[in-house]
Design a binder for these strands. Structure first.
Length: 203
DNA sequence: TTTAAGATGCCC
DNA sequence: GGCATCTTAAAC
């Protein structure tokens, strides 16, 4: 694949409604300049979390703590947190003071596959390198030290790519939030239809 | 200060 | 299906 125009996207890209941003992020590239290498993945699955009224969100009921603070800042920043033994990454969405975020759940490797395999030893099938939110952060070597980083600045950024057609976007309930009551049914998960790197659904 | 649960992944 | 492993948030 030949990549043209590989550079950080303009910060204004993130200024749109949260659900629209979750869809617009599909197909975009996440780029990490790491150890003289450029690790690149195409985003193939996202989930929107819309704070105040979304019981599944960490910022539900406008909870504001050290962890959730970054979601109250301007869109395009990185919200990351540790889940069991893994780091999960989100794109902060919504205008300042609206604590929304979009979880990046899966990517398709585009460049740096060799390094991604080194970052995830003992993985047999290639799809298992990045077909889950905890897996892709390990493959791309993204840790908690990126909390609050601007995703429109090197060394970790979103790069432009053509949007995915609406009819190629799969929409459904979010993964792994069965104990969140009514919010468990909200159709706020988006993925590219038939892409092999999309994670498996699980209640 | 203590405790329970979790936007997961991997092994059995 | 069990369990690692650790942070957060809420209970005590």
């Amino acid at each position: 694949m030949i990549i043209i125009n590989l550079k950080p996207i303009d910060s204004s890209f993130f200024e749109r409604t949260t659900l629209d941003l979750a869809k617009q992020l599909l197909g975009k590239l996440i780029v990490h300049e790491y150890k003289d290498q450029t690790l690149i993945g195409k985003i193939v699955e996202t989930e929107a979390y819309q704070g105040p009224l979304d019981r599944a969100a960490h910022s539900f009921n406008s909870l504001r703590t050290k962890r959730t603070e970054i979601m109250y800042q301007h869109p395009g920043l990185l919200y990351c947190y540790q889940m069991h033994t893994h780091v999960l990454i989100n794109v902060v969405a919504g205008p300042r003071s609206v604590p929304h975020a979009i979880l990046i759940r899966a990517i398709e490797p585009v460049s740096g596959l060799k390094q991604m395999k080194l970052n995830r030893p003992h993985i047999k099938k290639e799809v298992d390198l990045t077909n889950g939110p905890g897996k892709l952060t390990k493959a791309l070597s993204i840790g908690m030290d990126y909390y609050g980083h601007q995703l429109f600045e090197k060394p970790l950024y979103i790069s432009h790519a053509p949007p995915i057609n609406e009819n190629q976007i799969q929409i459904g309930p979010r993964v792994g939030i069965a104990n969140s009551g009514e919010a468990a049914n909200y159709p706020w998960r988006f993925s590219i239809k038939n892409n092999p790197y999309v994670s498996a659904y699980r209640k």
